[in-house]
């Protein structure tokens, strides 16, 4: 395990940004830190980069104590949300900066620096744009320069803080695939902060979900989606129905519907969740959760309906059958996820 984060805590005044976070990443792993704003994910990234000093805890990388080094010595590549490109330097000068500021004996020869800049420009697909200035580039191009600049110092680890946050949706999707490709080519351990669950699930080997400075779950995207560790994780990574329920004597009752609880479920108040796409919509005579259709909008092969279940409103996909506002139906989920309250 090259990156080991142990029990990191950080507070700003009265605000607790990180509250005992422990986490590990394998060499070459692509790990996403996912969470709503204020969950502490950026603070954690800044602690790794050396831009924030934690109140307690330890961080080691390949057995080396990172907290004992200042940001300058860590050799960690950082890509910032708003690029932080040097506005008065050309693209090539930006990329070369980290090499040129090395002490004279560790500095590559000018010709070597030039060659490396060329290679990086090629890697980020900006050949021929080395003479441009940041102001002359599009947002997506600027972010690629920022990545090349971070890679130029041959970092031991790559940190990205909402790198696509300021870009529009289409550019984001293109860059996403390309970033994964760069990661696979360089084999760098990469930590990536985002508040966009789709981005995290799409891109990362594992996703760490943070909430209020605590880790909720660290797992593969599939496990996070299918076996969320908490009701919060369920709601954060996908659409679904979540209702309060109760387990007594092995029977789950939720919004007036009773069904056998999965084996081993402890009794008591619970939160019942299921994905909307894994529930069948049946006529009112069938067994299932009672739902009443409120509105529907037809879109291609299926319809999106809003319906009221147990006093709450949800949006879900429905087959293109004879449904209309006001109709009573039954929902039969294939699998429910139960979290104790």
């Amino acid at each position: 395990m090259p990156l080991i984060v142990e029990d990191i805590a950080k507070r700003f005044g009265d605000h607790v940004a990180l509250d005992g976070v422990s986490l590990q990443a394998r060499q070459g792993e692509f790990l996403a830190l996912l969470g709503p704003s204020g969950s502490g994910k950026t603070t954690l990234l800044r602690v790794l980069a050396g831009l924030e000093r934690p109140d307690r805890g330890a961080v080691s990388f390949g057995g080396e104590d990172l907290l004992a080094m200042d940001a300058r010595a860590r050799r960690i590549g950082m890509v910032f949300q708003h690029y932080a490109l040097f506005r008065h330097m050309s693209v090539a000068q930006n990329i070369a900066f980290g090499l040129e500021v090395r002490p004279a004996k560790a500095r590559p020869k000018p010709s070597e620096i030039r060659k490396r800049v060329e290679r990086l420009l090629e890697l980020v697909q900006l050949q021929g744009l080395g003479g441009r200035y940041p102001a002359q580039l599009s947002g997506g191009q600027r972010q690629r320069v920022a990545l090349a600049r971070a890679l130029a110092i041959e970092p031991r680890m790559l940190l990205l803080d909402e790198p696509f946050g300021a870009l529009d949706a289409r550019v984001r999707r293109d860059l996403r695939a390309w970033l994964r490709q760069i990661h696979d080519e360089t084999g760098l351990t990469t930590i990536f902060v985002t508040h966009d669950q789709e981005e995290a699930m799409d891109l990362a080997d594992r996703v760490a979900i943070l909430r209020d400075g605590r880790l909720e779950q660290v797992d593969t995207p599939e496990r996070i989606y299918e076996a969320p560790a908490s009701a919060f994780v369920f709601g954060f990574v996908g659409e679904g129905v979540q209702l309060p329920g109760e387990v007594t004597d092995g029977v789950l009752s939720v919004a007036g519907w009773r069904s056998p609880a999965p084996a081993g479920t402890p009794p008591g108040a619970v939160t019942v969740s299921f994905r909307t796409e894994s529930a069948d919509m049946l006529p009112a005579t069938a067994d299932g959760l009672a739902a009443r259709i409120l509105t529907l909008s037809r879109r291609g092969g299926s319809s999106r309906v809003t319906c009221e279940i147990g006093g709450q409103t949800f949006t879900l996909q429905a087959p293109k059958s004879l449904i209309a506002p006001g109709v009573e139906v039954r929902l039969a989920p294939h699998a429910v996820i139960i979290h104790p309250k």
Binding site: R11, G50, L51, R53, D55, R56, D70
Partner: peptide, 18 residues
């Protein structure tokens, strides 16, 4: 509040900056 801060918390008269 200062007493309630966790042990080892660094409190400085200005905001930390790198």
């Amino acid at each position: 509040l200062i007493l309630a801060a966790p042990a080892g918390a660094r409190r400085s008269w200005r905001k930390d900056s790198v």
